[in-house]
């Protein structure tokens, strides 16, 4: 499924770029991520604990940054696998300066697999959108 949107972060483009490239910020901001460990250049292993209402689960996953064009754009790929299936999200982030603020425009694909696709699609899509919102909110306050 397609995921796209835009979010304004109250910080200059360069700062937002640095935050996006800082694993400690990513670890704090990516919803559910408990730990982020380097796994090669611009690649991290992630352990994720997720909880929305009664739904909860543990996943292991990865975060990968690529096609970096500082401080304008990059591709972000995240994946998580666990007992109920897998979620992968891949998309492009564009940082557009808006005065002292930065608008982050994202567009990409979210793919669910296994039980998550079969049963949870309605919920997981909404949860994913919420996670993206949370990510940018957290990024703003980092």
């Amino acid at each position: 499924m397609k995921i796209e949107g835009r979010h304004t972060v109250p910080a200059p483009q360069e700062t937002v770029w640095q935050r996006l490239n800082d694993p400690s910020v990513l670890e704090r901001s990516l919803p559910g991520v408990e730990r982020l460990e380097p796994d090669g250049p611009d690649r991290y292993r992630a352990s994720i604990k997720y909880k929305v209402g009664a739904v909860s689960g543990s996943f292991s996953g990865s975060v990968e940054l690529s096609e970096k064009n500082p401080p304008h754009s990059m591709r972000l790929k995240t994946s998580a696998r666990g007992v109920p299936g897998f979620v992968t999200g891949e998309g492009k982030l564009e940082l557009v300066p808006k005065g002292a603020e930065t608008e982050v425009v994202y567009s990409g694909e979210l793919q669910l697999g296994g039980l998550l696709a079969a049963i949870g699609s309605r919920m997981v899509e909404s949860a994913a959108k919420k996670s993206i919102e949370d990510f940018f909110k957290s990024l703003a306050s980092s």
């Binding site: 009664a54 739904v55 909860s56 689960g57 007992v83 109920p84 039980l115 049963i119 949870g120």
Partner: peptide, 20 residues
């Protein structure tokens, strides 16, 4: 997790989408 009637929680637990 509180179990009140179980009409949502029990199916979620059986699917292991909820693991309290």
């Amino acid at each position: 997790k509180l179990l009140a009637g179980g009409q949502s929680l029990i199916p979620l637990m059986k699917l292991r989408l909820s693991v309290p």
